[in-house]
Every structure is written in structure tokens, then in C-alpha cells.
Design a protein around this nucleic acid. Sequence first.
DNA 1: CTGAAAGCGCTTACAG
DNA 2: CTGAAAGCGCTTACAG
Lengths: 354, 354
Amino acid sequence: MKSRPGKSQSISGKLEIDSQRRLPVTIEMVAKTAGVSPSTVSRILNGTAGVADVKRQAVNSAIDQLGFIPNPVARGLAGGRTLSIGVVTQSLDSPFYGAALRGIEIEFQKVGYTPLFISGQWNQLEEARCLDLLRARRVDGIIILDGRVDDADVCSLARNLPVVITGRSLQAPNVVSLHFSNFEGAEQATQYLIELGHRRIVFIAGDPAHQDALERQHGYRAALRARGVAIDEELVVPGNFSEESGLRAVEGLLREGKKFSAIFAANDQMAFGAALALYRHALHIPDDISLIGFDDLQPSVYAIPPLTTVHQPSHEMGTLAATAMLQLLHGERPVLSMPSPRLIVRESTAAPSR
Amino acid sequence: MKSRPGKSQSISGKLEIDSQRRLPVTIEMVAKTAGVSPSTVSRILNGTAGVADVKRQAVNSAIDQLGFIPNPVARGLAGGRTLSIGVVTQSLDSPFYGAALRGIEIEFQKVGYTPLFISGQWNQLEEARCLDLLRARRVDGIIILDGRVDDADVCSLARNLPVVITGRSLQAPNVVSLHFSNFEGAEQATQYLIELGHRRIVFIAGDPAHQDALERQHGYRAALRARGVAIDEELVVPGNFSEESGLRAVEGLLREGKKFSAIFAANDQMAFGAALALYRHALHIPDDISLIGFDDLQPSVYAIPPLTTVHQPSHEMGTLAATAMLQLLHGERPVLSMPSPRLIVRESTAAPSR
DNA sequence: CTGAAAGCGCTTACAG
DNA sequence: CTGAAAGCGCTTACAG
């Protein structure tokens, strides 16, 4: 395996003028054809040293001519930089994180960094494994989306690597935290229902292990309190962010004959479940019951009826996280502003009928 | 940067008995404490050579004691293997591919391979860029989910790397193709509607640039023909796999006063759009119009009403693709059987009312 | 500004 | 079975 396979070609070779097969070209070959030392090529590549226009041009044309692409693996070993960033998400197949991942991918692609996506499944041990793996892979930084790691571990991670983390507020050297105000979002949603005239508003809570879930519940309570609406604890029901839990929550309420005119589900997925439960009981949205979700997932737009919900800027979050990481990597102090929660009013809410 | 940062620690250190901070430990340190040469350690690590139980044990205990983790970057440079596999998906945030990505992740995690996810956005140029990037990163193999690359490029890729590709049938050395029968799935769906008594069945086509879309349309036509139902070309309407295109398709049909009792949308997302259009026109599913989708996305279960659809084994597809890749990597000839299409009957279909 | 040289942490012929 | 040595393709002090 010491001797490399004979030939190699760019898959996009057909897009290039020079479409001949080529051997993997190294920095040494570039140096030779440009008549300089490998060190110089490296320095030009990295912008590490003063320019010498003549040589620079020779090198650049050699690079173009040979179609040289630096080997990131060698780069990683020698320089300690791999130009790759670990991205710990909770799930690769939740409708929620995808947009953030895409935002991150776009941002990094622009500047030649490669994201390494890996999922922690909302599990602290799993997540620890992810972090170890990413460090073993020598990533240059780590982005954690809604991690379960505790703050202390984040801080110690950050002693070696820049860290960007979402879903919490954490002040520490070498870490940027991006926090979306779930509280405000939930407050807005609840307040909107109150303004429509609702008083008996069910809250389907999210998984209490999520910080987000807690904040949203606080927002709900704060809004009711602020408007002087008594909180009926029987209307606050547990859920776990899944569609099924939303469905079961509403089934339960209905079975027990609870009275309510609106439902605020702590996320859209539970709202979908809730909607199905109402449908099964021939209750019409929004005529009989108003429904609000949280997240503004893509399916919400085409829910029946289209769901009123709190928009989470998932894609922008990804963009922001990537941008912050790049700034940290460049030694800059990131200044970012997180978008505010925004209630998207669609067709699942109306004034109560009675 | 030559001298490494002073200390480093495992994030999951707290889970270990020996929780002290540790320097990055290299194979050389392991060799020293085990009293053998680095070569021997390497060989034990890779199972590359005959055993010598005494040494093996010494090495293994040294590894445990020091908490040694091989550096994949160095490994990649020296051995030509990076233990990473490129995974080209079309989208990181489509509801469709997530499950496959997760299936792949799970399978690789078991054996210590790391997937490198990257998205091609259904764009051939973009995808070529992805492939180049993955090769530059020296991945050991590439999995392509529904790629736009043409067969010739896949073959030339496969001269250097094992390739697993879904969404087409391609016989070539060093490539495994996994093809799901969209044709049969569409046939089943259409046949089911016919059996229910439907004759005027709308087909909302997918993006004609997708092989899948074409196959599904063929399945629809074949089923009608087989049952002697005349094909009314006015009922075959264009779409592009998006919710909006499904909505527009149905709006158009309704506006033009076309008569039909059922709709088969080439994917679930268009079915959701179609459902919304029907809802807006106060047409009830399935009493007025039956609706079938394709893919069995997660939201379909909680659609209103729950959507009858053709199940696509997205997760299993991921598992299979990863398994096939592993087999190729081990020099085995993969023998895989792709699951057959399966119609999932839920509540959006019924016999026509008239 | 720019070479020559050492080194990153492994793997793998090459010789025992 | 097992060392010593060379090498993977870069980067970066170290000296000009």
C-alpha cells in the first residue's frame, strides 16, 4: 500500500480543459515545476509569509497546471489544523436540525472548511463519545447543537478547541453560546391566544430533560400571569416532543372531559399529534379549538389547517454558529445577534366560539 | 504549533477511573511502556501480524492504562486508510434522507468508521464538487444516495475507491448499486385505488429529472393498463416533489373542473400539498377524494387524515448501503436484498362515493 | 524573502 | 514473530 495506485482522476475532470488522468500531485511536484522549495509553496498556500510576486505567480500557475489540491490529511498531521469542524447534532433525521446543518454546511463550504456531522441522540454518554471521536479526528473546532454536555465539560473542551454551543447561555473563554429565547417565544404564543379571547389554554409540555422545554413552559406561565389569567394545573400536561405524545395528551384531556378552547404545544410535532386527536374526535380547528405549535417546521405550512407557530430560525442558527466558529478560529471575538422569536399566524387559531 | 498544547483531556474522562488530565498519547509511548517496538503495537492494533500472546497482553494493558486512541489523521497519511467514508446525500434537511443517514451512521459507528456527510442538492456540478472534496479528504469509500453523477463517472470513481450508490442499477467492478423498485410501488398504489373502485385517478408527477419520478409514473400507467383502465392524459399533471407543486396541481385540476375521485401523488410531500388544496375547497378525504402518497415520511402518520402511502425503507437503505460498503472494503462481494415496496394503508383512501 | 531539515503519528516493506 | 528504517504529504522553526 506504500506505492499508490497507478492513476487517479478528478470526477469533475470533464468540466476542465485538461481532462487527462493524473497522478496524485504533491506539493513537491508543484515546487519542482515552479522552481522553488516546498516550503515556499506551503507558505504561499497558507499566506504564511511575505510575497515575492515572481515566485508567487510561478507557483500559482504550477498549481493550476498540475491541478494540485493540498492533502488535508497531511496538512492535519503536520500543521495541527485539519480544516474540519466537528458538528454534534442531536439527530440526523429529526425535521428540526436539518436546516441548521445545511446552514453550517453552506457557510463552511465557502471558506474550505469541512463539517463532520455526528449525532448524539439527546444522550449524554453518546454525546461524550461523539466529542471524543471528533477530538481524535483532530477537528479544529466543535459546534454543539443543543448539547447535553454540562457546562464544565464544555469549558474544559474549550481549553483545547474553540467551541460554539447553542441552546444555552454560557460565558467562557474560547466558547460562544447562541441562545434562542424560548421563553419569549412561548410568551408571545400564549399572549396571542389570550388576546384572541382564550382563557382555558392547554399547555402540552416538552421533554423536561430539555432546557428548551422548561423555558417554553415558563413563557406560557409568565404570559398567563401577566394577563391575570389563573393557571389551571390540570391544563398543563406532559409530553416528550413526539407527535404521539401530543396525541395522547389531547386524548387524555378529552377522555377526562376537561374544558379548554385552545392548545399550545411546546413543539410542532406535538401539535401535529394534537391535531390528529382533535380530528378523531370531530373537533374542528380553529372553530372548536385553537392550536399553536413551536418551531415552524416545514410541514407546518402544509398542515391541515396550516399551523400557527413560533418560528425558530434553525437555518440562521446554523449560519450564525458557523460564522462564530470561523471568527473564533481567526482569533476574533464574535459579536452575534440571535434573531428574536416571531409568531407566525396561520390558520389554526381563532377567537373562541363560546 | 510544533509543540503541542500542554494538556488535553478526554471529555468523557469523568466516566473513567483514571480521570487525570493526560497528554495526547502516541503509539510510541504505548510501545515504550509495553516494552515493544511501535511496529508491534501497530500490528496488534491492526491485526496485521501473528500473535505473541505475552506481548499482546502487555500492549493491550499499556493501551488501556494510557488511554491510547490511535490518531486517524496519522493513520490516514501513513496507511492510506482514513477509516472514513464519504456519504453524498442530496439534502441534509429533506425529510427523506435523514433516516438513511442515521442508518449509515449507526452501522459505521459499530465498526469504527466515520461517515463524512455532504450534500449535493440534486445538482450534478455540486455533486462533482462533493466527490472531489471527499477524495481530497482521502475517504476509504463513497456512498452516493440518489446521485446525479452519470454511470461513467461512477465507474471511474470506482477505479480508486469502492462505491455504493442508490437509486439506480449499475453493474460494475467495485460498485454496488441499491435499487428500490419505484415502479412496483407505484403499481401497487395505483392498483389498490383501482380495486377500491376508482377509475379517474389523478397522478401528480415528480421532478422528471429524477429517475424515481419517471419510474413511479411508469408504475401508475402500467397498473391502469393492466386493469384496462383508459389513461386520461389530462389527469397526469406535473409536479416537482414539493408540497407547493402538489397544491398547485390540485388547484389547477379543480379550477379546470376536471373530474376525478382519487389522487396518487408521486411523493408524500406533494400529497400534503394536495391535501391542503382539497381542504381549501372543502373536499373531504377520503369521502370525496382518496389520496395516496409515496415515501411514507414520518409526518404521514400524523397527517390529517393519516396518509395511505408506499413505504420507502429509507433507514434500511442506509443500513444496507453501509453494510455493502463494509463488505466491499473487506474484499467481499456483497449480496444484498432490497426490501420490496409495501403499501401502507391508512385513512386517506376509500371507495369512491359515487 | 526562502531553503534545508526535522517532525507530525502512524504503517509497512525489509531484514532478520 | 519483531525491530529499525523509510516514508506518507505537509508545516514550521531554524538559519540564512
